Simulated assay, not measured.
Amino acid sequence: MNKKPIIRFENVTKQYDGETILNDVSFEIESGKFYTLLGPSGCGKTTILRLIAGFTEPTEGHIHFRGKVIDRIPANERQVNTVFQDYALFPHLNVYENVAFGLRVKKWKKPDIDAKVKEALRFVNLEGYETRAISEMSGGQRQRVAIARAIVNEPEVLLLDEPLSALDLKLRTEMQYELRELQRRLGITFIFVTHDQEEALAMSDEIFVLDHGIIQQTGSPTDIYDEPINRFVADFIGESNIVPGRMIRDFLVEFAGRTFECVDGGFSSDEPVEIVIRPEDLEITTPDRGKMKVRVDSQLFRGVHYEIIGYDESGNEWLVHSTKRVNVGAEIGLDFDPEAIHVMRFGETEEEFDRRLEAYESSESGGAST
């Protein structure tokens, strides 16, 4: 039996001053998972967060929370809390008073407030900081205060609007681990907004990739990285080699002037396609042993690997991540497995991809049964 979604967007469009920010968006959010809304600035991810929080209303469509339409329900009556990019803490209040603020507004009794604040601070590893001034806290500590203030109200969904963006790289990495572990311990739904691909891949159960107000693809980090459905997703999620090709038939594709076995099907014969191969999936070998030959144009040392750029005989650029050092100007061979080749149809949407895959799998199972 499928779990009922805690949040459902039904054909939601949002416009500001006649400009469409979200365009006919539909998706579902399950309870107890870590979701990430990922995309470049202006793609609509923060607008989705604001719609869920109740800070704005949809122009068209409906938002459901546990099966109930909440389009017009005020923000303070929704079972969600938000951690903002700047944390929005009260600088004149200490840690305890910041965390207790929402409970005081709700007229909770002092013993109950004390118990809830202590519990929330324990969850974020800030026990003993109750009387500390906000001005005396580090960036990571302030973020944890903001999270404690949010979870003390026991929301069913916690919304996080790029809360790590102001932190330095080391602290940001530490907080990624802390947030992921906190979500697991709390067991509530996190919806996290970021434009950082590595952050999204590291933290999420499921990622929604947005561009120009449209969800381009949804899936697990592995699905998004290994099986991008179009050029935008492939290019935005990590680094990719994307070259033109031609599908000869199922499991056989042509690019870079040669024919290669692959694992993709469901395309038409002789259909123009785009080929994606991740740079870490390319192995450097001798020219006579590689599946293709590349002339090395540049090489940079990145600490854990060399970043090598070369060009094949058809003029396609190839980015390679390798622990092997090569000489600029040298000819090298590149080897790769059929599984490393990902074939994309030009301009395919997620719905079209799903239909093609379903039709292909249906034809395969039908063929097997005859």
Rank of each mutant, 00 (worst) to 15 (best):
V99K: 00
D335H: 12
R185P: 05
Q141I: 05
T259C: 10
T59L: 04
E307Y: 12
N76Q: 13
G102N: 04
T59E: 13
G265D: 08
D250K: 10
Q15M: 10
R185K: 12
P221T: 03
H305W: 08
L93Q: 06
P58C: 10
E313S: 11
V99L: 10
Y177P: 00
D250G: 15
V12L: 07
V263F: 03
G315P: 07
F65N: 05
T56Y: 13
W108N: 01
T173P: 00
N153K: 13
K170E: 11
P111Y: 03
S269T: 06
P111C: 11
S41D: 06
M1N: 12
I7Y: 00
V263Q: 11
Q217R: 11
F353L: 05
V83Y: 09
P5H: 09
N230F: 15
D211Q: 15
D86T: 06
S365T: 12
E130L: 10
P287I: 10
T323D: 08
F267E: 09
D281A: 07
V145E: 02
I188D: 07
K3V: 14
K45H: 09
N153E: 09
I113W: 11
F27I: 08
G139Y: 03
L37K: 13
F353P: 12
R231E: 15
K324R: 07
G139S: 07
N81D: 11
K110N: 00
G39V: 01
F346K: 15
F353C: 04
G67I: 09
N316W: 14
R356T: 03
S322N: 09
S369V: 08
F301D: 00
L282P: 05
I207F: 03
H195T: 02
V80D: 11
F232W: 12
R184E: 12
E331R: 14
P287C: 10
I207L: 04
G140Q: 10
L252A: 05
P228T: 03
